[in-house]
Design a binder for these strands. Structure first.
Lengths: 335, 335
DNA sequence: TGAACCAAAGTTACCGGTAACATAAAAGCT
DNA sequence: AGCTTTTATGTTACCGGTAACTTTGGTTCA
C-alpha cells in the first residue's frame, strides 16, 4: 500500500511557488495581519491557483484543536432535533467550528461508543441528548476535559453545561389541561421510552394520582414511534379500556397517528376523545382538528447551547450550570 | 496558549509501561496476529488500564486514510434520507468506517463549501444527494480522486457511482394513475424545488401534455415544504382553479397537509379531489384516507451504496456506473 | 548615535501516529 | 551443521501542519 503522496497540494508547494517558507504561508492564511500585504496577496493567489485544500488532521494534530464539535442525537428521523441543530450549527459555524453529527439509536451503550469515537477524532466539545450516561461514558467525558453540554432534560448534577426543560413538570401541566376540560379517564401512550419519555410518564402519573384518578390506562412499547404505531396503539387501548375519554400521547407522531385512527372510526375528537401530543412539531398545527401539545423552545435551546459553548471554548471556566428554557402548553382543537 | 500535553494517553505511554517501543503497541492494537500472544495481552491490559484513546488525526495523517466517509444530505429534517442513511451506516460501520453527515440546505453552493470542508477532513469517500454540482465542486471532487456516490436521481454522466431512480418516469407513472381513475383537471403542487422535484414536475407536464390536458394548474414556491404549507397551497389552488379535480403533490408532506385542508373544508377525498404524494413515507399509510404515493426503495438505496462503496474503497477501479433501483406507484385511498 | 523596539520573515522541534525497511532469534530443511 | 525462512520486535523517517523562539533589518527617539 503506497503512501498517498498523490497530487495533494500542501503548504510547502505554495511556499516553493512563492519563494518563502511554509510557516509564512501558514501565517498568511491564518493570521494575515502578520504578513506583508504584497506577500500575502501572492500567497493567496498561489494557493487559489494550485487548488490548495488545508489538511485539518495535520492542523489539529499540531495545534491540539480540531475546530469541531460533536453533536449526538438519538435518531436522525427525530424531528425534535432538527431545529435544535439548526441553532447550534448557525452559532458555531460562525465561530469556525464544524459540527459532527452522530446518532445513538436511543442506546446509552451506543452513546458510549460514539463518545469514544468522537474523542478519538479530537472534537473540542460534545453535545449530548439527555443527562443519563453509562459510567464508562461519564469517565471518558470527565477525563477528556473538553466542554460538554447535556440537553433536553434538566439535572441537579450537570457534568458541565445543562440546557433543557423540566419534562415531568411539562407533563403535569398538560395533564392539568385535560383535567380542566373535564376529562377523567385519561390514558397514556408511549413508544420507545427514553428517559425524557419516562419523565413525562411520571409527570402524568403524578398528576393523575394527585387528582385521585386511575393510572391504569397506560400502554407503552419499546418499538420506535411512528404514525402507524400511534393508530395501532389507540386501537389497542380502545379495545382494552372502552371507557377511555382522553389520551396523553408521548409525542406528536403518536398523537397524529391516534387522531387518524379516530377519523377512521368516526370517533369525534375532542368530543368523544381528547388527544394531546408533545413537542409542538409542525404537524400539530396542520391536522384537522389541530393537536394539543406542549411546545418546547427548540430553536432557543440550540441558540443557547451555541452561546454557552462558545464561551467555554474561548476559555470560560467549567462552572456546572443549568438553564431552564421552559415550555408552553398549547391547547388546540383536539382538547 | 500552551500545548495540550494534558493527561492524554498516547501509544508511547503504553509502550513505556509495558517496556516495548510504540510501534509494537501500534501493531498489537491494529494487527494483533503480528505480536506474540503474551505481549499482546499485556499491551491490551495496559491500554485499558491507562484509558488509551487513539488519536485518529495522527493515524489518518500518517496512513493517508481517515476511515471516514462524508454523507451530504439536503436537510436533516428530510425524512427521505433517514432510511438511506441507515443502510449506508450499517454497511460502512461494519467495515470500520465512520459516517460524517453534513447538510447542504438544498444549496449547491453550500454543497460546494461542504465538499471543501470534508476534503480537508480527509474523508475517504463522499456521498452526494443528486447529480448536479457547481463547476468548482466537480473540480474539487475529481481532483480529490476519492470514490464518490451520487444518489437519488440518475445521470448519463456519473462522476463515479450513481445509485438512484428515474424521478421523471416515476412522476409520469403517478400521473398515469390519476388519468386511469378518470381525473382530468389535475394540478401540481411543489415546494422548494430541488432538481429531483423539477424532474417530477417535468414528468407530470409531459404526461399531461401527452394526454392533451392542461398544465396550467401548477403552483410552486421556493419555501421549504411542510404540512402547513401543503394546506395553504391547496387553499390557493382551489381559489384559483375552482374546477380542480386532483393534485399531484411533490412530496408526502405537502400531500398530507393538503389532505388535512380537505378535511377542514369537508371536501371528499378521493371523491371530490384526488390526492397523491411522493416518496412513500410512513404518514401515507396512516392518514384517513391513506395517501397515494410513489414508494422509493430507500433502504435498498442505502444498502446498495454501502456495498458499491466498499468495493471501491477496497481498491476496485473507477468505472462510472449507474444503478436504477426503480420505484413503485402505490394507489391508496386518496386516489 | 546607539539602545530599544517592532515588523516580517525564518529555524527548529514537535504533535501522535504509521510505512518501510532492518535486525535478531527461533524454526525448518537438506 | 549450515543455510534459508519465518516470526517478533526495533529503527528511522515522514505525514502536513503549528508553537515558540530566533534572526534580520528598519524605525523611533532620547
Amino acid at each position: 500500500m503506497p503512501r498517498r503522496s498523490s497530487g495533494r497540494v500542501t503548504l510547502q508547494h505554495i511556499a516553493d511557488s512563492v519563494g518563502v517558507t511554509k510557516i509564512t504561508v501558514s501565517r498568511a492564511l491564518r493570521e494575515p495581519h502578520l504578513v506583508s500585504e504584497d506577500l500575502r496577496l501572492r500567497i493567496e493567489e498561489a494557493a487559489a491557483a494550485l487548488g490548495y485544500i488545508p489538511n485539518r488532521q495535520a492542523g489539529a494534530l499540531a495545534s491540539g484543536r480540531s475546530q469541531s464539535v460533536a453533536l449526538l442525537i438519538p435518531s436522525l428521523s427525530n424531528a425534535v432535533f432538527s431545529e435544535i441543530q439548526r441553532g447550534i450549527e448557525e452559532g458555531l459555524s460562525a465561530a469556525g467550528y464544524q459540527v459532527l453529527i452522530g446518532h445513538t439509536g436511543y442506546s446509552l451503550l451506543e452513546e458510549e461508543r460514539l463518545i469514544d469515537t468522537y474523542l478519538s477524532y479530537g472534537v473540542d466539545a460534545m453535545i449530548l441528548p439527555g443527562t443519563r450516561h453509562t459510567d464508562q461514558a461519564r469517565r471518558l467525558l470527565t477525563r477528556s476535559g473538553i466542554p460538554l453540554v447535556e440537553t433536553l432534560e434538566l439535572t441537579d448534577t450537570p457534568l458541565d453545561i445543562n440546557v433543557g426543560l423540566d419534562q415531568s413538570a411539562a407533563a403535569v401541566a398538560l395533564t392539568e389541561a385535560f383535567l380542566e376540560r373535564g376529562y377523567r379517564r385519561i390514558g397514556f401512550m408511549g413508544a420507545r421510552l427514553d428517559h425524557r419519555a419516562q419523565l413525562r410518564l411520571a409527570g402524568w402519573k403524578r398528576r393523575m394520582k394527585q387528582a385521585g384518578l386511575s393510572c391504569e390506562r397506560c400502554l407503552t412499547t419499546p418499538r420506535p414511534s411512528s404514525y402507524r404505531l400511534g393508530g395501532d396503539m389507540l386501537a389497542s387501548m380502545l379495545e382494552r379500556w372502552a371507557d377511555l375519554d382522553g389520551v396523553f400521547c408521548n409525542n406528536d407522531d403518536l398523537a397524529a397517528g391516534a387522531l387518524f385512527e379516530c377519523q377512521r372510526r368516526h370517533l369525534d375528537v375532542p368530543g368523544q376523545l381528547g388527544l394531546a401530543g408533545f413537542n409542538g412539531l409542525d404537524i400539530t398545527e396542520a391536522t384537522t382538528p389541530t393537536l394539543a401539545t406542549v411546545v418546547t423552545p427548540r430553536r432557543r435551546i440550540g441558540d443557547l447551547i451555541a452561546r454557552k459553548l462558545q464561551a467555554r471554548l474561548q476559555g470560560a471556566p467549567l462552572v456546572p450550570c443549568r438553564e431552564d428554557v421552559g415550555f408552553e402548553v398549547v391547547c388546540r382543537g383536539s382538547l
